[in-house]
Simulated scan of single mutants.
Amino acid sequence: MHIQFNGRRALVTGSTGGIGFAIAKGLLAAGAEVVVNGRSEASVAAALARLQDLPGRAIGFAGDLATEADSARLFAAHPDVDIVVNNLGIFGPQDFFDTPDSEWERFFQTNVMSGVRMARHYAQGMVARGWGRIVFISSESAINIPADMVHYGFSKTAQLAVSRGLAKRLAGTGVTVNAVLPGPTLSEGVAEMLKDEVARTGESLEKVAADFVMAHRGSSIIRRAASVDEVANMVVYVSSEQASATTGAALRVDGGVVDSIV
């Protein structure tokens, strides 16, 4: 199978690091033009510098797409794209009884409404052209709601509802809508979280991450954290022409953490 995106333009929200950066890199490597998004000009510029040698063309957009104002600026600057990857997201543990309304709202606007806005704007052009791909980056936490991050799990489950419903709304148009559910993934953020344990034990980051996975996600079948590239590979595929019969799906890249046969 040879996946290529020559002539296609993609938007990957929250793509200056972590899984989003790996997705942008994968799409660029297959020839796409990619709008790379981060909240600051500095983070976007740094990401573009790291992507400059890939075959596709990377374009930067700095703005907080959790807000309507910056989303409107994006739509004005880049009115049409063929592929939208709604990767922008935040997470963090907080006890249910200590989580105020403002934090629920912040998670909802960032993790859910940013993707709703992107899909609502860009899907119309995709339908007119008869082709498009919309991907929501959810999480295995959408199914396994974490007791210490109920607000986060709620937002990830909401993404599944939007993804499935929108896929049905766009039935027969040539536009597919899917959700990808990563499990524990060794991103820069996770590496930062584990750095003290790496220093304390003298073990490799990969070993410390694997121990963390088994301590906190003991149902993992691969018994380690996934790499950001492993997650990106699924997103690149589902964004491709070859994935034209896959829509309305929740595609797990969770290392088998979710104990289910479907």
Rank of each mutant, 00 (worst) to 15 (best):
A209M: 06
P182V: 05
N86E: 10
K195Y: 03
S139P: 11
Q159N: 14
R106P: 09
G125L: 01
A49K: 15
G130C: 01
L65F: 05
A10I: 01
G202N: 05
V190Q: 07
F154H: 14
Y122E: 01
Q124W: 04
T246V: 15
R57N: 09
G26T: 05
D80R: 13
D229S: 12
D148W: 10
A62F: 12
E188N: 12
V36N: 08
R252F: 14
V162E: 03
N6I: 11
N144V: 08
A29M: 08
A179G: 10
L166R: 08
V85Q: 03
F97E: 14
R133L: 00
R73I: 05
V116S: 09
G132D: 00
V112W: 11
A46D: 15
V112N: 12
A215K: 15
I137Q: 02
A250N: 14
P182F: 05
E230T: 08
L251N: 06
I261F: 13
V231A: 07
S244R: 13
V238D: 00
M118E: 03
V116A: 15
G256I: 03
A10L: 02
I137P: 00
A147V: 13
A24W: 06
A158W: 08
F21H: 13
A32F: 00
H151R: 09
G60D: 07
S187N: 06
R164G: 13
R50P: 02
A250Y: 11
G218P: 14
T110E: 10
I221C: 05
S138P: 11
H216I: 00
I83K: 01
G202D: 04
G17A: 14
D254A: 07
I143F: 12
S227V: 02
P184W: 03
V238F: 03
P55Q: 08
T110F: 10
S15H: 09
L166V: 08
E188V: 06
Y122N: 01
S244G: 05
T157F: 14
T99R: 11
T247N: 04
S220I: 02
I59A: 09
G256W: 07
A72M: 07
A225L: 05
L170H: 00
R224W: 06
G38Y: 07
Q109P: 05
H2F: 10
V35G: 05
P100A: 11
L28T: 04
G183D: 02
M234S: 13
D148A: 12
A119F: 08
S227E: 07
G153L: 09
S43E: 14
L74A: 04
A199D: 10
S102Y: 10
V228R: 05
V44T: 11
G256V: 03
K207P: 00
M126S: 00
A128Q: 12
E140V: 10
V34N: 08
D98W: 07
H216P: 02
T201D: 07
P146L: 07
M126C: 03
V81F: 04
A72P: 04
L88K: 01
R224G: 02
F75Y: 15
G63K: 01
